[in-house]
Amino acid sequence: MANILDAIRKNQDGLLEEWVQGIKSGVRRRDLIDDRELKAQSAEVLAAICDVSADTTLDNLNAPAWQPLKDLLAGLSASRAVQGFTPSETAMFVLSLKSPLFNLIQRQAGSDAKHLFADIATVGDFVDKLALHTTDSFIHGRDQVIMRQQEEMLELSTPVVTLWDGIVALPLIGTLDSARTQVVMESLLQAIVKTNSRFAIIDITGVPTVDTLVAQHLLKTITAARLMGAECILSGIRPQIAQTIVHLGINLEDVITKAKLSDAFRLALERSGRTVTRLEKSKGSALARYGEQ
């Protein structure tokens, strides 16, 4: 088997030429990658295959000697994912190395059919595994993008706003699942500490439905806030949600609820010793100004 690797080393240039030609005639995205870059990448991969210690064999891709090649392919597929290649196009790049390798083996083996067959099986297996590894890396790259976006979305979805000195509000919009409620809960409690707020208003006007699990999470948030020394007011409960809450038998009796955010805000102001009053303007002056125009 080692002699296949030797053969590859000796015929590196010829293989590269054949490989690049093969890629060009097959699926290739001229719009995404130019000839020179393609050739450079191919040469790099081929060099990584040749550049392993003498005792390395093709049948064990898990050997540490193959790690540089695997890393190279992983990096390549990640950059191809960004460039806009499809997973199959990326896999084809590796798979198209098969045919030049087969030709090489055929030339080497001559008429020894038994040897030829064994070598072709080994090389085929090797290239397949490389292609699978490349596809895995490609998907892994995408998974990471998706995970990062999910995290970013979770962060975006929990804007805690300060309404007044010591009063924060959390307007919730969209469906609340367990993971999001958890993030919401944490960021609200953090904000309570950071802004030193005794009152927190959770407004669920923008929440279409509330199931038992979400209601439980909300209740836990309210209890946790109380343990920290802050009081929560729940506002914006829609009629349908009020019905659901009662039907599900969720106990909100210990929770202060208000129909509108403004009512909750007014209550928080009152409890912190403030009132809202309309400034008395004398009618006369207003009329007078009107008259001036």
């Binding site: 944490e186 409690l189 309570i192 500490v193 836990k220 209890t223 946790a224 109380r226 343990l227 920290m228």
Partner: peptide
């Protein structure tokens, strides 16, 4: 006074309010 958010969340989960 001064219970940390993570502590409060854990206590609630533990069942102690």
């Amino acid at each position: 006074v001064g219970m940390q958010p993570a502590v409060a969340i854990t206590l609630v989960e533990l069942g102690m309010s």
